[in-house]
Design a protein around this nucleic acid. Structure first.
Lengths: 74, 74
DNA sequence: TGATTTGCGGTAATATATTACCGCATTTAT
DNA sequence: ATAAATGCGGTAATATATTACCGCAAATCA
């Protein structure tokens, strides 16, 4: 997988993640509290700046109240 | 998320990944060729030794001919 | 208007994944 | 019995994610 493809994937994931969060009416800081993460980092994930790990996908899913597979449904 | 939880997650993911591969009747080296990865590393992923990244989930899904969300369906 | 919330960019130290390589032991095929 | 395939452990160099900070600008609220 090329760098560009990965960057594109991160962006698409981030857009999807943001939509889920906003549909739930949560702020970055609220999600951060639920996930034990920092709001700035979730912001970066949503903006496609990180190629996050498996465990983080599950942490985010838990914090957002959705299943992990839902986070990859885009 | 604690270290132990992450280790457990990796193992469950690996077990699921292996099942998908074996259901397709593929060897590690065959999947490795399709994914442009090394067979030893896929072995380690299946054995829960890696907390892989988002992009790698998609690479594996492509190589296995399934959707990424299917890989998290366990 | 003043205060709070929100999203976001920057940073630096640390931890971790990535990658390709080697070879071995076991299983499977000829 | 011989050869090939398979799964897997070890390693070392490199790249990358992680984490918790800080503070700002714009939006929202009292």
């Amino acid at each position: 997988m090329q760098k560009e493809e990965i960057a594109d994937l991160q962006i698409r994931f981030g857009v999807h993640l943001r939509k889920i969060r906003e549909d739930k009416g949560l702020s970055l800081r609220e999600v951060a509290d639920r996930c034990d993460l920092d709001n700035s980092n979730i912001s970066k994930i949503e903006n496609g700046q990180f190629n996050i790990q498996l465990s983080k996908i599950f942490e985010l899913a838990k914090g957002l109240g959705v299943s992990a597979k839902d986070l990859l449904d885009f």
